[in-house]
């Protein structure tokens, strides 16, 4: 059963004149009983589909190898359809068996025709879709699909696309981080960049600890002197944070301005002691 199918596929794919045949073929199938009824011999072989008929067909095919060139054979079959009575009557069993074999092919090729036609449409569709790089998972023939993917070096299924998008996102974030961390631009390699980032965060956190230690020491040294500091000045309006934010403004202005009194007292009373304490522990 296999060789006729292969012949059919190659024929419909390769032969440019296949359109006429594919258009012609359904009609003989429909008109088969009529014709077959007229031809008793063929009808018997057709209805039998017996192994004997197949064997005979194969043996005849061996003898008529030259005729198995796809289109020629089928065209001959079409001719035999047109002039079937003449062929059957005049020629010997060769043509009869051929016709029976072709009829078997025909009965299969009814399905095959539909299948191949849809496949052809799928081929054209898949070509368009691959050209458009659409991500939809159509059902193109797998060989074409793999072929294109191998050529472009890109996977187009949704998982790979998502993974690629994620990787791009990560590398983008890494670039932002590299710009953020000083001295990280020259470092190459993700692991080393991560190392730099980790070190930088750790150093920043250590600085925060150190500065809060400093503040604590300053406050604790100063605190006994200022136990009675006025709580009215604790309101938010008394803070002049601009000096602290930028640090460029001179401290004198800060002292003269709306500074809370505890800071003033800190500055004036225990400047030396605080400074001494701050420099010693670290």
């Amino acid at each position: 059963m296999d060789p006729p199918i292969i012949n059919e596929a190659s024929f419909s794919a390769a032969n440019p004149s296949s359109y006429s045949l594919t258009e012609i073929w359904p009609f003989p199938i429909n008109g088969e009983p009529g014709i077959g009824g007229g031809l008793g011999l063929r009808m018997s072989s057709l209805s039998g589909f017996g192994e004997a008929a197949m064997n005979r067909d194969l043996s005849v095919d061996e003898s008529t190898v030259t005729e198995q060139s796809g289109g020629g054979r089928k065209r001959r079959y079409a001719n035999s359809e047109d002039e079937s009575s003449r062929l059957v009557s005049t020629s010997s069993g060769n043509d009869l068996n051929n016709s029976s074999g072709k009829r078997m092919k025909l009965s299969q090729s009814r399905d095959e025709n539909g299948g191949s036609r849809s496949e052809a449409e799928a081929n054209s569709e898949s070509g368009n879709k691959l050209a458009e790089k659409s991500t939809k998972s159509s059902e193109p023939p797998k060989q074409d699909y793999i072929h294109v993917r191998a050529r472009r070096g890109q996977a187009t299924d949704s998982h790979s696309l998502a993974e690629r998008a994620r990787r791009e996102k990560i590398s983008e974030r890494m670039k932002i981080l590299q710009d953020l961390v000083p001295g990280c631009n020259k470092v190459i390699g993700k692991a080393l960049v991560l190392d730099e980032i980790i070190n930088y965060i750790q150093s920043l956190q250590c600085q925060v600890e150190f500065l809060s230690m400093k503040l604590e020491v300053v406050n604790s040294r100063v605190n006994p002197h200022i136990e009675g500091f006025p709580s009215k000045d604790l309101g938010p309006t008394t803070f002049d944070t601009s000096g602290m934010i930028f640090g460029l403004q001179p401290t004198r202005e800060y002292v003269q301005g709306s500074q809370p009194e505890w800071l003033q007292m800190q500055v004036h009373n225990s400047f030396d002691r605080a400074k001494h304490d701050l420099t010693t522990p670290h």
Partner: peptide, 28 residues
């Protein structure tokens, strides 16, 4: 995580800057 890290680094830098300014103000 990387996104948050970027923002966190920026905030830590700000924090260190402001705290250092406060300490400088208190100790000078």
């Amino acid at each position: 995580l990387l996104d948050e890290t970027a923002h966190y680094i920026g905030c830590l830098t700000t924090q260190v800057q402001v705290m250092r300014n406060i300490v400088d103000l208190c100790s000078t």
